[in-house]
Design a protein around this nucleic acid. Structure first.
Lengths: 215, 215
DNA sequence: AATAAGTCGTGATATTTTTCACATATTCAC
DNA sequence: GTGAATATGTGAAAAATATCACGACTTATT
């Protein structure tokens, strides 16, 4: 669609900016500088200015950015007005965490239904979201295009295939399995075990320079 | 410590390689090529060869890599032999997911204790891990250097401060808050809401080229 | 033994992302 | 108004990452 020239690294930071701008507005702040923003979201201020600049000149020299204006701009850019329906597959602890999380607040996504293989969970409602049995996936899924996968790794391939053949185009995969999908389906992996291992590896092998701790 | 020349991007992929090599060995495979590995972990084969090459010549031309040898090498490199103790702060749904996750399998980290503000949870044991009241943090934490933060965002700053002053050096932060820490403390953010929003943004703005779906 | 097929390791190149640094514009204090 | 302080937007440079492409070596086959 539109301007495909925004770097992916920038795109990944947009929701973060958006959320923080919302906070600022709720605090009643009307202006903000890239420096302030930088301290809050822990991204270099030059990077923030560069990110914003891909969308044109949104700020004013010597002044900074108008919170309301910037927020309005990002609302449109991030399609914050239209709500994207999401399906959750696997209502274990992790899945339940998602259901109870108030996603639609400051967010353009909404989990509208969930599935689980446990018959005891089917028919219930968690966090206001109806839970169906996984056997009814094809029947109930409807036109949802995005799915969150919080199931055991052993089920990942089978369920993914079913999701894809029902027209799912985006999958947020929390299983350790590296699932295979057609080229027109996008998968983002979040691998909790690996994140923890990577953190530990960095701690041991990449000592942070303990330069005069800021007083 | 040792060779600081390994790129961060490479370091982040190491646990992934390691896990897959383990799978291979359990399947009884003795050799593997970068091409096979590539298909399994969805990383370009040249990238894999480059990643490995930072550690020296681990493979053989015309043959590939010996699974056992590679695994042994990574076991040492990833300190897979020593277990790193981890504390979990916040035993909600997400926290419970971690406690029930069998981390020590194929993993060099172990959650050894957990804390929660709910007095009903204190004193219990979940997934074999004792849960204490958050008030006892300082008393019970001991020498643990890594913490997983699965608490409400509103508590993030206060708890972080307490963790840092007790000597925590690595934090895996699942709260939306961008916490501030001294320079010698490493924080990795995993922001579930943002991951979902980013996925949706990519779906809408970065259409994947539907080139002849592989038959 | 010779040939074909397979595969690594890596120099070189391309791409992506971050950062520097400064001209330019705005605001604020007086 | 004037000068000092503030802050953007961006050209240019640097750094980080990914990919290409091929020489060199190994294995398998006939």
């Amino acid at each position: 669609m539109e301007q495909n020239k925004i770097p992916q690294a920038t795109a990944k930071r947009l929701p973060l900016y958006y959320r923080f701008l919302n906070n600022l507005q709720m605090q009643g702040k009307t202006r903000v500088s890239s420096k302030e923003l930088s301290e809050a979201v822990k991204v270099d201020s030059a990077t923030i200015r560069r990110d914003f600049s891909y969308f044109g000149a949104l700020g004013k020299k010597g002044y900074g950015y108008n919170v309301e204006y910037l927020l309005g701009f990002f609302r449109k850019t991030l399609d914050q007005d239209e709500l994207t329906d999401v399906a959750l597959i696997g209502v274990g602890n992790l899945g339940t965490a998602f259901l109870n999380y108030n996603f639609t607040k400051n967010n353009n996504t909404k989990i509208v239904l969930a599935f689980d293989a446990d018959p005891n969970k089917a028919g219930k409602e968690i966090g206001g979201v109806p839970v169906y049995h996984i056997d009814d996936l094809e029947e109930k899924l409807g036109n949802v295009k995005v799915a969150i996968l919080t199931i055991p790794a052993t089920e990942a391939d089978r369920i993914t295939e079913r999701l894809v053949s029902k027209g799912i185009k985006g999958i947020l995969n929390f299983t350790p399995a590296r699932i295979s999908v057609p080229d027109d389906v996008r998968v983002h992996h979040i691998d909790l075990a690996i994140e923890l291992q990577a953190l530990v590896y960095f701690l041991k092998h990449y000592p942070l320079d303990t330069k005069e701790e800021v007083l």
